[in-house]
């Protein structure tokens, strides 16, 4: 747990070739990505649904949503469950790293030269031990009314 007000506890995870991070308080649960049921007529970034304690929960492929390809359902793949406005949504990541502590000031706006769908959906970036951590803007990523940002033809299974 973060002890100081200026400290931020984050969980890191891999999306495509990039490393992302979410504040730990945003995360409801972390589950293995098994037994995904495909959803008919859903956009490509909806990888399926899972049974999460009796509730049918949609799992989105962050890579597809951000135009970074699609995520293989390998043994390292995990679903990060977040709660957005009372609705639980799973975010599929290729792998999950460790809990990391940062200083809030380490998170900066994305550089203006960054481009593409992924950059448009970022809250900020941080450089930690030489690695770049991307902080996704979940409100923008989970705004389903906008155009599908996927450039990938569809998920692989």
């Amino acid at each position: 747990m973060s002890g100081r007000a200026d400290e931020l506890e984050v969980i890191t995870f891999r999306v495509g070739a990039e490393e992302y991070a979410l504040p730990a308080r945003e995360l409801c649960e972390l589950v293995r990505a098994t037994r995904l049921t495909r959803v008919p007529h859903a956009p490509a970034y909806v990888r399926g649904v899972i049974n999460l304690h009796g509730e049918v929960t949609a799992v989105l492929d962050l890579a597809t949503r951000l135009g970074l390809g699609s995520t293989e359902l390998g043994p390292e793949a995990r679903v990060l469950v977040v709660d957005r406005h009372g609705e639980r949504v799973g975010l599929l990541a290729a792998s999950v790293g460790k809990l990391t502590h940062l200083c809030r000031d380490d998170v900066r706006p994305p550089p203006p030269v960054a481009a593409g769908a992924a950059a448009a959906s970022l809250d900020g970036v941080a450089v930690v031990e030489g690695r770049v951590l991307h902080f996704p803007n979940l409100d923008r990523i989970l705004a389903f009314d906008g155009p599908d940002q996927a450039t990938d033809p569809g998920p692989r299974r």
């Binding site: 049921t37 959803v39 008919p40 049974n51 009796g54 049918v56 949609a58 609705e87 389903f144």
Partner: peptide, 27 residues
């Protein structure tokens, strides 16, 4: 039958989902 709360799951052919005995989901 469970409701499909997420907006991304809304499609006219989907009436809901059922959780089966082995824990899997069937639309």
């Amino acid at each position: 039958a469970r409701p499909l709360g997420a907006r991304v799951l809304c499609h006219p052919v989907l009436a809901g989902a059922a959780i089966l005995g082995d824990g899997s989901v069937a639309f």
